[in-house]
Nucleic acid binder design. Structure first.
Lengths: 352, 352
DNA sequence: AGTCATTGCACCATCGATTGTGCAAAAAAG
DNA sequence: CTTTTTTGCACAATCGATGGTGCAATGACT
């Protein structure tokens, strides 16, 4: 309030004003003053001046000197998806509560872009990095390692760094079972009636497909390959797969498992082009939770991945002394159709 | 590749290796070497060495010296919402294409938190700031001004800095008209059949409510106050408002306008507690677009705000010499029910 | 050969904070 | 009234990059 629009106050300014040396000012303001045996009165004077002049430390200078920035990075495939944005939200809260500053960036599942983005983060001397859903976690790992940057993988595992991922196999089993049981309420379900769409050649997809096939075989007795349609992650490709099926069969499968909410958007694109009757009786499972997706005009079972716990575990691992490249599983939960879970949004400040 | 896990190379290391002075190395690596009349051969030698040793500039040091960081901030209320996460996605792309680094943070619509978060960003010497959906834009403005930080408001306007917002009045008119016309297909609509839920005491809500009332009065002849329910922004409060209406009337209004997709989540919470018949025939308008929200089991008209254009305009304003505190309107678009728009997700690298 | 312009680069202060070290003054001990 | 200990702080180097300034070497020109 005291200075109007001036340059920001530095420890040198406060040094002049207080008559103390810059190093004393620094010690007072960064809390190390007791250790440095600064008189209480001196400290208070300096703190008062700092408040009056709205002093805030220049974190670039601090970071340069101490080679720590207080920045913690989170690398996402995209922001624009409830799973990842909810992860960003949890991440932010936890980073803040540790007194650090979150830096959330996305790299569009492009391995080259992933490495470039991480290199940029490294240039800012970030202290730690969470790598979520990277296409090439090990490639990113190498970049981090060269820079001596602590990091963990979230959601998609790597082989070189510790990974914390959803228990995809178990989650897929729960989801598949739920779909089957629900579909059987409408009459017997043949193996040809149950498909899986989406996913690709990554660990998560493999495990989910494995879980799906296990349960399907156990409950329906067979598991033809044709029912597995790994369309990649894009909504466009997924929509094309639904379209192709529809053209071949004149309808959608009675029940199907969608690999992620991004793939589920592909289903929306299909739906937009077809009348309501086309999908009047389908049963859908989606490996991801989205509050609106849960209320679509057909039953949608969803899997809510526990990104909050993943982040928490991630920090625990980063804080540990040794960080062996082990994969930790976090159990997701099955969300029945028409369920509105509370989430980070409820942290919104509002007249409650 | 050459150094394994060592400390990062600096211009001093390259200076030793090349025999040139640190300032020459610096000039070569930051591109100012022609201006400094460095011999082409010298430059190439240094660049070769830099590549071999995987040199990347320490951006904290550069930022400290040049008092610019290359960071551009975006302050959001929350990540976990398609409107804001899509804004984050556009923002990121545009910041990257300008060769800067995006820094997206959220502040939970808490004015105190907003200022604190911005103060942190300022400590990192960010170059520019986009303030999106701030509860107290002018409070944030003051913090920015003291630090000499260029900034614009997005989505919610302030009086002290330039603002770029959705044309809320026009958007609300379009949306209201669409709801009414659709509802009238099912028979005559009385003014008591059309409600508005959500929003609060902010500029956007005012304008939307004004647009709603204008059109309602024009088309339905009346516009009773009781039909306006500004429940705040939280899903919980919005759900409570639906619940209250339902208790009083045994049903939901035939048609209603929901102020935002966050409020629409409140509707989901209500729906989860009630049988399907409760809302078999409702017509909903939501001032925000969400791809799954568009396919709910009743007609949902949505307004897609053009955050891409808002960000573009924001940069144009920041780049301008003068920045008068003017409010710029960006026209949103009406999205009919059952529409799957393409979006940032389509930038995902995938087998297309 | 002498003057002048140009080329090519090195030197050094600087950005703001951190931190190891040293030293005077005050307090305690003898 | 010394000697020792403790208190309280100042000094200066450092982190890595930037950019103004100065100066030697080379070439051009008279």
């Amino acid at each position: 309030m005291t200075d109007i629009g001036k340059k920001k106050a530095t420890i040198y300014d406060l040094s002049m004003l207080s008559g103390a040396s810059p190093s004393t000012v620094s010690a007072v303001l960064n809390g190390s003053w007791r250790k440095r045996r600064i008189k209480e009165a001196t400290a208070q004077l300096i703190q008062k001046l700092a408040n009056e002049h709205g002093y805030t430390a220049n974190l670039q200078a601090r970071g340069l000197r101490s080679s720590r920035s207080g920045l913690v990075g989170l690398l996402l495939p995209v922001h624009d998806n409830r799973y990842f944005s909810s992860m960003a939200q949890s991440f932010e809260a936890q980073v803040r509560s540790r007194g650090q500053c979150p830096l959330v960036v996305s790299a569009c599942r492009d391995p080259e872009e992933e490495r470039k983005v991480v290199a940029t983060l490294i240039s800012y001397s970030i202290d730690e990095l969470f790598i979520a859903g990277a296409t090439d976690p090990d490639g990113v790992h190498k970049v981090c390692e060269k820079a001596g940057l602590k990091h963990v993988n979230i959601d998609l595992p790597g082989t070189l760094a510790p990974s914390i991922i959803s228990d995809n196999h178990e989650g897929a089993r729960m989801l598949t079972q739920a779909i089957i049981e629900r579909a059987q309420e409408d009459g017997p379900l043949s193996p040809d009636d149950l498909y899986l769409f989406g996913g690709r050649n990554d660990h998560a997809s493999h495990e989910r497909i494995r879980g799906f096939r296990d349960v399907k075989r156990a409950l329906l007795g067979a598991d033809p390959d044709v029912c597995i349609q790994p369309t990649g992650y894009s909504p466009a490709m997924t929509a094309r797969a639904f379209e192709a099926f529809y053209e071949g069969h004149g309808k959608l499968p009675r029940a199907f498992f969608v690999n992620s909410s991004i793939n589920l958007e592909g289903l929306m694109r299909f739906l937009a082009l077809h009348p309501h009757e086309t999908f009047a009786d389908i049963i859908v499972g989606c490996y991801d939770y989205d509050p609106f997706g849960s209320f679509l005009p057909f039953p949608v079972f969803m899997i809510r991945q526990d990104s909050e716990t993943m982040i928490t575990k991630g920090f625990a691992i980063l804080d540990a002394d040794r960080r062996p490249p082990i994969t930790h599983l976090v159990r997701p939960t099955l969300v029945p159709p028409r369920t509105a879970l509370t989430g980070p949004l409820d942290a919104l400040k509002d007249i409650e």
